[in-house]
């Protein structure tokens, strides 16, 4: 059977993420109650998996690494149509940089069993490094294509894809099993149906902790992260502002004059 793994991440709601700030005095992050949501690009990965499944058949496992509340986004994946949801959750996984995250996810994928295709969003809204798909492919010894905007799947082991480059795109053939990191152009994620929610309710999320993964603690979380944050500081603004005031018409007129003075026209 064709096995698809989709990687999903619970991120602070991007609409409210700026509420998490550096406290200038303590140099730590202020704790704000920003709700977790499914990373938008991962929805495109999920959608792609569902579309492929309906074409070539198979089974979809959604995997996420995160704190216990991240289970909610796996429920969302189940409601969209995933067959299984797996949450990798343990204190030992905390504080992971992209490297340790990719490593932990790779171990999770190995435990699920031989995946034919691993799909993930190209980037997450909170970290935005774009590393995880590529790093994970190295740990799994699979080929990877990032920036995927079209997948021309088939039943053959070589699949054709289109992927972004700067100022254009490339067409590639990639041999499955492979990792594809996808972009928003790929598709439009479906809405969750009522029947999907009912079906998802009956399914359990599998939770794997440190013991379940069975890898040395030194390669996970903060301990397994090559990079660390050495300093946090507040940046000071650099310009002296002059507010332009008056009626709307006056403000527009004055602004146009400023533009003209600066030689804009």
């Amino acid at each position: 059977m064709f096995k698809i793994v989709v990687l999903v991440k619970a991120v602070p709601d991007p609409k409210r993420a700026s509420e998490i700030k550096i406290d200038p005095r303590t140099k730590t992050l202020t704790r704000a109650d920003v709700p977790l949501v499914m990373n938008q690009l991962d929805k495109h990965a999920m959608e792609s998996a569902l579309a492929l499944k309906s074409r070539v058949g198979g089974e979809i496992t959604a995997i996420s690494m995160g704190p216990p509340p991240a289970a909610a986004i796996l429920k969302e994946c189940l409601a969209m149509g995933a067959d299984h949801g797996v949450l990798l959750s343990d204190r030992a996984f905390g504080g992971a940089d992209a490297y340790a995250t990719a490593y932990t996810l790779a171990k999770g994928i190995e435990k699920v069993g031989s995946a034919d295709l691993v799909l993930c969003g190209m980037a997450s809204s909170d970290g935005s490094t774009e590393w995880v798909g590529s790093e994970l492919s190295v740990f799994l010894d699979l080929p990877v294509v990032t920036g995927v905007k079209e997948i021309i799947g088939s039943s053959e082991p070589w699949w054709q894809v289109k992927a972004h480059i700067d100022n254009g795109y490339r067409e590639l053939k990639v041999k499955l099993p492979a990792v594809l990191a996808v972009t928003r152009e790929l598709n439009t994620p479906r809405n969750i149906s009522f029947s999907g929610i009912i079906k998802a309710r009956k399914k359990e999320i599998t939770v794997w902790d440190f013991d379940a993964l069975g890898v040395p603690e030194s390669s996970l979380g903060l301990a397994g992260s090559p990079t660390i944050i050495s300093d946090l500081r507040v940046s000071e603004s650099k310009r002296e502002v002059e507010m332009i005031e008056g009626t709307r018409e006056e403000k527009a007129e004055m602004l146009v004059q400023k533009f003209a003075d600066a030689g804009t026209f």
Partner: peptide, 11 residues
């Protein structure tokens, strides 16, 4: 830049 400030990362 992150969280409204600057963070330094070292390896």
């Amino acid at each position: 830049p992150a969280y409204g400030g600057l963070i330094s990362i070292v390896c």
